[in-house]
Design a protein around this nucleic acid. Sequence first.
DNA 1: ACGATGATGAAC
DNA 2: TTCATCATCGTA
Length: 172
Amino acid sequence: MRVILEPSFFSQPALAVGRQLLGKYIVRAERGKEVALPITELEVYDGFEDRASHAFRGKTPRNEVMWSDAGFLYVYFVYGMHWMLNVVVGKKNYPAAILIRGAGDISGPARLTVKLNITGAQSGVRAIPANGIWFEDRGVRISRGHCKRLPRVGVARAGAEWAEKPYRFVVV
DNA sequence: ACGATGATGAAC
DNA sequence: TTCATCATCGTA
């Protein structure tokens, strides 16, 4: 079973997408080679009220893709050396995105972008096969007991209320 | 525990 | 134009 995830999947409410995206595959195709990894860890950033989200400070050249259509990629550079891969979710003009933190045996968002050769060149791009990167349902089902919800990483400055929300989803 | 390493956004 | 910060990682 290989079903490509469409905008109708990503345009659901952000937390619903987060829960369902665990176990889905991220697929990267370049130069005839295909890498497909099941998503094991992610974080949801949900709306302009989320103080941990880049969208909280308003639309800027870097984050404006968060306001665009569900299924687009938001890739940004941080700490002077790391690329972070997000997929835009929710309704158009509602800024929400999901940070992919781990897939397959890769643990950590920066390592994942190195493995999949993803950089700012992919920011603002639709996640579709024609662009060499997309998401698939391959029939993996993550049961309730194998899904753990935890606080997000590295967002303490957002304040306790938002830093403590269980917006990180992990396959255990 | 800390340095790498540079873009970003807010303040001046 | 300066400055602190940053959705991290490798080395110690």
